[in-house]
Design a protein around this nucleic acid. Structure first.
Length: 401
DNA sequence: TCTGTCACG
DNA sequence: ACGTACGTGACAGAC
């Protein structure tokens, strides 16, 4: 814990009480269309399989795909075949049933978790109220339950339609402000990595510049694959990557992945030093600390089992970064709350989604609120490189982003 | 109640 | 040689 937790309790309870409005009419329109698609897809999958079965059962699906249709099996779980999204993607070209199943999975997930379940959580005031847990995530992040409003869809087109159903009351608007690349900025700051720092200071795209450094090419000569690989490596560093894990993700040989990592750490030597320091801190003290002093015990680092010890090393690195980012936005939440009230505004905090804060208030307050929140979020921590934010205002959550 | 899957950061 | 990217929560199906 840090000293921010106590004042945050007050902000969180108020945020939970504020809630957010769900446009149930629009949600029903989306639901009807998705349900029709799901039923149609189910028929087509059964047709291609030559039998009726429960597509939502990984067990039954595994039997159909790998025994009946004899498609190439990839990983297997504890109980049987794995049929997760990555497996399906890998065998997509083997049979026309696969794209149908992928689409079925996407739509039925959205229908079950959001379209059907969410309206049941609407309270007497016609709004959704989550509960923020402050003592659940080991890194110091918040979590959101009953319902979870930190995992509202945005990545697919249908997902975005659902997000657009989160709206402001008439006369109000939503203000969404999120940190730009906060974990990589935290990494640059804590690791004291001047090359990474300079990328941010110049305002460049960090993944493109990383690709440029690793592949030794000017940005304009990079192909799209190089940027996305660099992005994977950047995230991998934050998560505590291994050559094995990276090779798996990038679908490249392990020695090639090792070369990426070596090259990256060569270009950003202070990052390598930081990772080593985090691991050593965990080994010596049994815990790591964030920039703000939050501690996480890492008993895994002293396990006899090498897999467990490896996990401990990844946790040591990741916790410092993810936990520091969590500390920063917690400070920002308290400061935004106080600054908005001090300015005499009625704009309220509605949600926190790890690197984003969502507010609702009268349309005429939005410009002032945006200025205050931007200032407070950037000022929550004195960082080099400095923190940056993207702010947007809209009638719904999608248009505010 | 556990497992697999997948929504988000 | 070993084989996992970090952090969550909710749902359906299987047991």
């Amino acid at each position: 814990m840090t000293r921010i937790e106590l004042p945050l309790v007050h902000v969180l309870r108020e945020t939970e009480k504020n809630g957010i409005k769900l446009d149930t009419r629009q949600l029903e329109i989306v639901e009807r269309r998705i349900n029709a698609d799901v039923i149609q897809l189910e028929r087509e999958v059964w047709e291609l399989a030559g039998e009726e079965f429960v597509i939502g059962s990984p067990q039954q699906l595994g039997v159909v795909l790998f025994e009946k249709l004899k498609l190439s099996r990839k990983r297997r779980g504890k109980t049987g075949y794995s049929t997760d999204a990555r497996v399906l993607q890998a065998i997509r070209d083997e049979h026309p049933i696969i794209p149908k199943i992928e689409r079925y999975r996407e739509l039925s997930k959205l229908a079950q978790t959001y379209l059907v379940a969410l309206p049941n959580w609407i309270g007497d005031d016609g709004r959704l109220h989550t509960t923020f847990e402050q003592t659940t995530a080991a890194t110091g992040r918040l979590s959101s339950i009953n319902p979870n409003l930190q995992n509202i869809p945005i990545r697919t087109e249908t997902g975005r339609e659902i997000r657009a159903c989160f709206i402001a009351e008439p006369g109000n608007q939503l203000l969404s402000v999120d940190y730009g690349q906060v974990e990589l900025r935290v990494l640059a700051h804590i690791a004291n990595e001047q090359v990474l720092r300079d990328i941010f200071l110049r305002g460049e795209d960090v993944h493109t510049e990383t690709a440029s450094a690793v592949f030794e090419l000017p940005p304009e000569q990079l192909d799209v694959g190089m940027r996305s690989k660099a992005k994977m490596v950047n995230y991998g560093i934050v998560y505590g990557l291994s050559a094995y894990g990276l090779a798996d993700r990038l679908q490249i040989p392990q020695d090639e992945a090792q070369e990426f990592i070596d090259r990256y750490l060569e270009r950003f030597p202070a990052v390598a030093q930081f990772m080593q320091d985090a691991v050593e801190q965990a080994e010596q003290h049994g815990y790591v600390s964030t920039l703000f002093g939050r501690r996480r015990q890492i008993p895994e680092i002293r396990a006899r089992n090498w897999q467990m010890r490896s996990l401990g090393r990844r946790l040591a690195v990741n916790t410092v970064i993810q936990g520091t980012a969590a500390d920063i936005i917690k400070v920002a939440m308290v400061n935004c709350h106080n600054a908005l009230a001090a300015a005499g505004l009625t704009t309220k905090t509605i949600l926190q989604i790890h690197d984003e804060l969502l507010f609702e208030g009268p349309a005429e307050e939005m410009e002032a609120a945006k200025e205050i929140v931007t200032r407070e979020m950037i000022g929550a921590a004195d960082m080099d490189p400095p923190l940056t934010v993207d702010a947007g205002v809209g009638d719904n959550w999608l248009s505010a982003k």
